[in-house]
Structures are given as structure tokens and as C-alpha cells.
Design a protein around this nucleic acid. Structure first.
Lengths: 201, 201
DNA sequence: AGACCGATTGACTGGTCAGTCAACGGAGAA
DNA sequence: TTCTCCGTTGACTGACCAGTCAATCGGTCT
């Protein structure tokens, strides 16, 4: 009755991790299921033992990480910090996610968040929840008078998130330098750009 | 010797326009060449008379429009305006492009600009040229003292472009309202956000 | 009229994969 | 020892579709 499914957990994780690498390298679409199996060192059919389809593998990867992001944003909003500090926490979390696992973030951004016709559409509700949470932070900032009121919170949220995602894209495609120092600088600079603006005060 | 290829121009255009509609509706990947032909009201084989491949149809659409964008950015930079006005011109052009032909812009953004693993990669040089031109505007603004100097121009360029593209994405997916008034407001608000910042002055 | 030539047609082919499934193996239960 | 369960294997199939090509059409030139 009582079983110890030690290997199951193992192989499933192995397949997911392999999928991250292969998706990051070749893109979801030009990845064959056999590529994932090979990379994971398991038989083709085993992928279908643990996942309903190739799509489900990507869905799992996305959901796993995106829920962390949502939690992080909501946690940032929870504390009694100023809206600016909250935004710094959000930017920091996203940048650190990239630093911690660039391949996974690449997959999530390239194949889901920006893949509007396939997975982006599927996960729109979850993605939207992130935008909404950021908008909430902005709205609160406006109420407290720390942010100007003539910019729609949803609008600001899109700009803020768009700027960050574009930065990640820049790193992914090596359009801008991506050293540890750059990551750190980026965190405060996005927020500085969005909160203070480019023009000198 | 002298021929009047009146119909050729016609049918080719017809195919391109049909492709815009179908790509916008179904996405490049789930569009069959036969869908394009059907939508254009021509025979399957004719698509291959005018284009080397399905990819070439999309490439053509992208290049056609992107070269206009590049020209617009460079023209904006050419005049003697302040950097802020130049950025307004750039934002204005992109927003107007969307207003003028949302389907085409959707295709370009979704299938090329953000399709990092397929066409985005192919067209990286052209896409990058846009980022670079915007960065140049920022750099000039810094030299003249109209922009602060502690933000790297490439970084600012990514933030600015990323914010705009995210707005278009928001419109495309109906995450934010998209009336004519919204478009107009967006133009000045993106620039206001980036130049002045969210915090009150 | 007849020859020529590019535009147009659409049936067909070759190759590619996602997903299936029947069989194998090894660890515990009886 | 034998049975059972389930994780594991990989050959196979059915569907799908980009791109080919031989044939037809229709205008122009001689």
C-alpha cells in the first residue's frame, strides 16, 4: 500500500531540466520530443509517461516559475514599503531569476510570455495577474501621493514590465552586456528610469 | 521586349495582404500556405511563383514595414528638435503604425520582433538598428545636458522601446483599452513616463 | 494562324514528428 | 519461487504540410 516513489520524482525532474536546456537552445518548436528524451538520458516513451504531451512539459515549466513571480510581486506589495521600494523588489526578483537560471527565463519569456499565438494565449490570465499586481502597486503610490496621478496605473504597469522584459531580451540576445555588475545596476536603473525619468531633476 | 506586368504586381500584393490577415488571425506557424492562397483567392502554387517559401512571405512583410520604422527614427533624429521631441516622434510613429494597420503590426511584433527563436533571430540586425538609433537620440540628449548621464543610452533605449512594444501587446491582447483617444494619450504618456518619471516633480 | 512565354492551376510527393502501444525488467508481496 | 505492479523501453503509425511540377491558360508578337 505504502510506496516510496523515489525514482519517479527523479526522472520527472530530469526530463523537465533537460527540456529547459533543449528549449533554450533550439526553441520549443524545433525541439522534438526525442531531443528532450536524449538530453535527459531516458527513453522516448518515458516523456509520455510523466507528461500528457510536449506542450504540457512547457506548461509545467512556465507555471512552476511564474507562480513564484506572482508570489514575489504580491509579497513585495504586502510589506509597508514605499511604492518605489516595492517596484525595486519586483525588478530585483525578475533580474535575479534571470541571473539564477537564464535558460529557464529565456524559455519562459521567448516561448510563453512573448509567444502570443501559442502559449502566451493559453497563459494570458496568469500573465495578466502579474500586470495587475504591478498596476496595484502604482495605484497605491498614486493614492499616497508618491506617484503622479495623470498616468494610468495599467499603463505604467505595462511600461514598467515591458522595460524589464526588454532588458532580459537584450541579455538573452547579447545586445547589451550581462555581467553581474550589469544585473545589479539594471535593478536600480529600471526603477530610476521609470520613477525619476530620464530628464534631470 | 517591353512588357506591362500589370497583373503580377496585383496578385503579389493580394497574396501579401491576405497573408497579413491570416498570420494575424492564426499566427504564422499554424497558417498553412493553402490558407494564404485561399484567403487571397489564388491557387496554391501561385504563392510559390511570387515567393520562394512561406518564410519569405513573412520576411517581405516585416522588411517592408520595418524599413519605414528605421527611416522614421532616423528622420526624427535628423531634425534639430530636442531629444524629448525626437522620442515623441518615434513613439508617435509606432503608435500610428499600429492604429493604421493593427493586423500588420501584430504580425510583426508577435511573429518577428518577439519571436526570438525564428524570425527574430534572422532579423536581429535590422531590429538592433532601431535600438541603436534610439540609443543615439538618448546619447545626444545626454551630451546636450537635457538627459541625465548616469543611465546608459543602450539601456534607456531598451526601456523605451520595450515600454512601447508592451503597450502594443496590451492593445493586441485587449489588456488595455484601445480607442483613438487612448492611442493619442499613449504617445505622450510613454515619453512622459520615460523622460519625467512616475514620481511628481 | 502559329509560335512563344509568363502567369496560373492544383494534384501529388517526400519527409517529419507527435503520440501510441506492446513488451520488458526488476522490486517487492505472497 | 512465482506473481504482480509499474517504471521503462523504442519501434511504429497516422496525420500533416511545405514545396514541386507538369499541364493549362491567355496575351503578344510575327
Amino acid at each position: 500500500m505504502a510506496q516510496a516513489p523515489a525514482p519517479p520524482v527523479d526522472k520527472r525532474r530530469q526530463i523537465l531540466d533537460a527540456a529547459i536546456r533543449v528549449f533554450a537552445r533550439q526553441g520549443f518548436h524545433s525541439t522534438r520530443v526525442s531531443d528532450i528524451a536524449d538530453e535527459a538520458g531516458v527513453a522516448y516513451g518515458l516523456v509520455y509517461h510523466y507528461f500528457k504531451s510536449k506542450d504540457e512539459v512547457l506548461n509545467e515549466l512556465f507555471t512552476e516559475r511564474w507562480s513564484l513571480l506572482l508570489a514575489a510581486i504580491e509579497e513585495a506589495d504586502g510589506g509597508g514599503d514605499s511604492p518605489r521600494v516595492k517596484l525595486e523588489a519586483v525588478a530585483g526578483f525578475i533580474v535575479d531569476s534571470y541571473r539564477h537560471d537564464p535558460e529557464l527565463m529565456k524559455v519562459i519569456i521567448v516561448e510563453v510570455t512573448r509567444a502570443a499565438n501559442s502559449f502566451g494565449r493559453t497563459h494570458l490570465p496568469e500573465i495578466r495577474r502579474a500586470y495587475d499586481s504591478i498596476a496595484k502597486i502604482v495605484a497605491e503610490g498614486q493614492e499616497s501621493g508618491e506617484f503622479r496621478r495623470d498616468v494610468d496605473p495599467n499603463f505604467a504597469s505595462m511600461s514598467f514590465y515591458g522595460a524589464i522584459e526588454q532588458l532580459l531580451s537584450g541579455w538573452i540576445f547579447e545586445l547589451i552586456p550581462a555581467s553581474d555588475a550589469d544585473f545589479e545596476r539594471a535593478k536600480s536603473l529600471v526603477v530610476a528610469t521609470i520613477c525619476d525619468g530620464l530628464e534631470p531633476r
